[in-house]
Nucleic acid binder design. Structure first.
Lengths: 134, 134, 134, 134
DNA sequence: GTGGTCTAGACCACT
DNA sequence: GTGGTCTAGACCACG
């Protein structure tokens, strides 16, 4: 399945982000082999050269490691993955706070949303949408 | 200034959302006249027919009111705008929670983010921008 | 005010019908002078030749009388106007019955409508639409 | 066969009415597939976009259901079709009563017409076609 | 000037 | 094949 690609941002950056998300989520495990350039290109429906560039950049960031003749492997450095995880979390938080700030919500509404958020993310349950939680 | 348009979602829906956001933010005031179909089309860099459809749909939702030969006006019903504001807030919260849930953060990290969010949105101050702290 | 003209039926026939309706309704009184060809043409927004033909046909039916140099006059024969009135009434009734017959209404629904019609037209009050009747 | 189109009312409204009439008459059966947008456009001799709008509006009223890539289908909800049938019946009745009211008929004539109407629509027989009777 | 409607023709996603 | 969306450009009614 190809990710959704926004043509207005460089495709290689979008694919880099996607791979980092997968690593952070655990879809790709620390030290594990990544799909080959060709396979990833097929999956993302982009040119293999684009994926090659992605892998090169990730290599430069030491996020992945490429071994000639063997393939590319996600870093085994869990601290590095964890930093990425934190960065993505803070990014999402920053973006969310910016949106909320622009809405002109009342103090009460903001307090309410903060409470919902707190409950949701400390329980791994999203209670901002209906659920059958007890 | 044209908004950024994602070609994968219908343009008319994106423009509808944009207008609602502006109303919610106060860029358009309750009861005030909106740009004419033609002007909005120029601003958004789309065909006037597309904006005509947008205005028609917003009219159906009673979010705007159209007076033949005069123009289109944002609803003066602030309760309706407030409902929209709440919806946008909950949407953003839901999306944020979803992203956070996928990151595989530790309980501690999630608790920390929830606290930052709480402080940020109840104080109108964004203290969540990425920093190099430990 | 021009009547609404359906371009698919001969215009002169539509204007003939319109003049008959006015006579039957009493908008034009028996024996009274009609607008001149030129005035009627202006009113109906058609070519004067068309109105001239209309007057000629109505003259042939003895529904109007044209006096050289004086103008055209509605017949003073009230029996003739009354026959026209009856014809228009039966036409409307026939058309109505045809429509009702095509709807596939239940016996009950048809009976109900017949009752409404009876009440409405024998009292000069339309009770098929909301009214403030006592 | 194209329906007769009155250029003064929006075509898309007239086509909506025509489709509803056909559903009410049983020309289109509950749940059955309607002609495709393109076919209907050919039949009605209008642009496919106009029919697309018609189908969109009927979909919004839940009078038809559209399945992407498959086609459009008349609702299977016979109660909804029945409501439409009633509406059309009352509309026709209201229009008829209005015309009759404008004719200036005598009390006797109106009573007579009401009786004819009653007999005609409760027996499914049209005995109101014009005749030369006195 | 405004919005409302219609046509013509294009491209897309879905099946 | 289906409907959904968009553009381009026209004409209309309203004020």
């Amino acid at each position: 399945m190809a990710i959704h690609i926004d043509p207005s941002r460089p495709i290689y950056l979008q694919i880099m982000e996607e791979i980092k998300k997968r690593a952070v989520r655990g879809s790709y495990l620390p030290g594990a082999q990544l799909p080959s350039v060709r396979d990833m290109a097929r999956e993302m429906e982009v040119n293999p050269n684009t994926v090659a560039r992605v892998y090169m950049e990730l290599e430069r960031e030491e996020f992945i490691e490429t071994r000639r003749g063997q393939g590319s492997f996600l870093t085994a450095d869990t601290a590095l993955i964890d930093r990425e995880r934190t960065r993505l979390g803070l990014d999402a938080a920053g973006q969310f706070v910016r949106i909320i700030g622009e809405l002109g919500l009342s103090t009460e509404q903001r307090r309410d949303i903060a409470a919902r958020i707190g409950r949701a993310i400390t329980r791994h349950i999203d209670d901002t949408t209906p659920s059958r939680e007890g």
